[in-house]
Design a protein around this nucleic acid. Structure first.
Lengths: 127, 127
DNA sequence: ACTAAAAATGATAATCATTATCGATTACAG
DNA sequence: CTGTAATCGATAATGATTATCATTTTTAGT
């Protein structure tokens, strides 16, 4: 159903974490189960899973994209100190988008990123 | 006040356009006034203007970042067909962010991207 | 203005994330 | 089984961005 073992493992791995790993991170973690795993395979499969709609790509301001297997309508907090990406479980009221998009633009989806500092980084900053 | 001529020109150029140019675009357009302009200079200055808070970096899902000299609290529509970036002049009610951020996260700013298709691309699609 | 120190430049090499290539391997339909 | 399509792993290539560095420009203080 989901084709290769590699692809299934990547999806499973993403579904089993609350972090939002980068391709590199997925690669190094799964490397333990698949010693011959290739980074290219991770990128390929992440892209395909995104196209299938089973995974969402998070393009934060960092250099690297993150992946999220939670495709529900939720947002993300990005810590500008540690680059951590955290879930914010809320959706924007439809009204807001409807009111602010004329028929010039047809919206398919949206992503909201809130930037700031997480508690851990604020602490280590003062320390 | 704004240091080099190049930096002033880049800021002026950004302030004078409603598009949200990439570094490459800024470079090729300003090259006409500054034949010796270097792409590195554009990147350097865009980064500095961002740090100064005079320019905002837009990291859409495309490969290239865009820059925006309008630092007011507004959002962007990204056409997934033509990669165009358009202004959406509205801000989120503070309430929404306050309600959904516990004190784990201290928000500094946010960016909302709405993805979809612009009218021009919808037309050329059906045609 | 004159001048030394600091900041910025242009040209280009280097880096880093991601994608493309390609021969070998694996999955699946008949 | 067997042929075909999909996928893999390894690695080269690409593309955006950043780093380097010698030279030029800007700034502050005389």
């Amino acid at each position: 159903m989901n084709f290769s073992k590699q692809r299934e493992s990547i999806l499973e791995y993403l579904r089993g974490t609350k972090e939002h790993p980068t391709a590199e991170r997925i690669y190094s973690d799964l490397k333990q189960d698949f010693p011959k795993l290739s980074l290219a395979t991770v990128y390929r499969n992440c892209n395909q899973l995104c196209e299938m709609g089973k995974v969402v790509r998070l393009t934060t301001n960092g250099k690297t994209d993150h992946f999220d297997a939670d495709t529900s309508d939720h947002q993300h907090f990005v810590c500008t100190e540690c680059d951590g990406v955290y879930d914010l479980f809320f959706a924007l009221p439809k009204k807001i988008l409807d009111e602010n998009l004329d028929d010039e633009f047809q919206a398919d989806f949206y992503q909201l990123y809130v930037y700031g500092t997480c508690r851990a980084c604020r602490k280590s900053k003062t320390a």
